[in-house]
Simulated scan of single mutants.
Amino acid sequence: MLNGILVPLITPFDDAGAVALSALERLAHQVLDDGAAGLVALGTTGEPGSLDPGERQAVVDVAARVSRERGTTLLVGAGITPPDGAIELSLVPPFVRPGEEGVVAHFAAGAGPRVIYHVPHRTGQDLSTATIRRLAAIPGVLGMKYATGAVDASTVALLADPPPGFALLGGDDALISPMLALGADGGILASAHVATSSFVELFETWRAGDVKAARTLGARLAEVSAALFAEPNPTVIKAVLHAQGRIPTAAVRLPLLPAGPLTSADAYRLVNR
């Protein structure tokens, strides 16, 4: 079953505005060296809507090559057919709001290994705990990136009695500590780009049952995540990665704009304190 901290990769750009594939490959190896359990290519953090088809395929090729070399998990988003051995990260249908029955029918009609990405503030579609349990029973559905924006009664009920063989992965970076405390299997966390080993340590500390240490570390990382998401993702993360010398530029593509210098400096300070 999926578990641990997975990193949804940014797409770095060079000075000419092209995808910096060599920097992407280095970054993928770095987060795995620091303990990440796997990678996500072309999630929201990877700006897939701003990439042309050739660029998207090149990003997937790099991530797949690194994942094969390292023997780690790879999830692929943006509606791209995942390569052999990879898992599709499939968004709950956005915009159309098909209702919970429609969501279940949509995923039941699919094939292949999938992790569902449930993020209501982007899709406009809420899912009840009962519906999530129905989704978990669909063949090929391996788990869910759970990013509802809250740890509420439904979250508690779901994690108190999780569907067997179904990985529940936190997707709200600032809330990952309480999610892990309740028994989540890990997280898909953009913030883990810049503090990979610390997020891995948080996961392992909760697993070890060291509540005091986990609470302290979780509070610090929640502050880091808040700073990294102070402007639209992944603008601040890219600014910090560039300041760390890990990607050639902090550039993003429209409709995103680069993070402001004060926001970037504050996030860099928190990451490196």
Rank of each mutant, 00 (worst) to 15 (best):
G209F: 00
A150E: 14
T44Y: 04
L169M: 14
L42D: 10
L32G: 05
I10K: 07
N272W: 03
A147D: 05
L42Q: 06
R220Y: 02
T196E: 02
E204I: 03
L9I: 01
A28W: 00
A105Q: 11
L127S: 11
T45P: 10
D126H: 02
P53S: 02
V200K: 08
I247H: 08
A192Y: 00
M144R: 08
P255G: 09
E88P: 00
P164E: 09
V19L: 13
R269E: 15
G170Q: 14
A174Q: 08
L169V: 06
G171D: 13
S264E: 10
A219F: 05
V92T: 04
R68P: 11
A64D: 11
A219R: 10
L127D: 01
D34N: 14
P162E: 07
Q30C: 07
V104M: 02
G124W: 04
A109M: 04
P139S: 03
R273N: 12
A192L: 12
G38Q: 12
G171R: 06
L241N: 03
A251N: 14
G110L: 07
L91A: 13
L75K: 07
V96E: 07
A130D: 13
G187H: 03
S128L: 09
H29Q: 11
L91W: 05
E101A: 15
L180I: 02
G165P: 08
P162I: 01
L254Y: 00
M1P: 15
G79N: 06
E69Q: 14
A147Y: 01
K238V: 02
L142E: 07
I138P: 10
G124N: 05
A251W: 01
G49D: 13
L158I: 04
T196S: 05
V115K: 09
T131M: 05
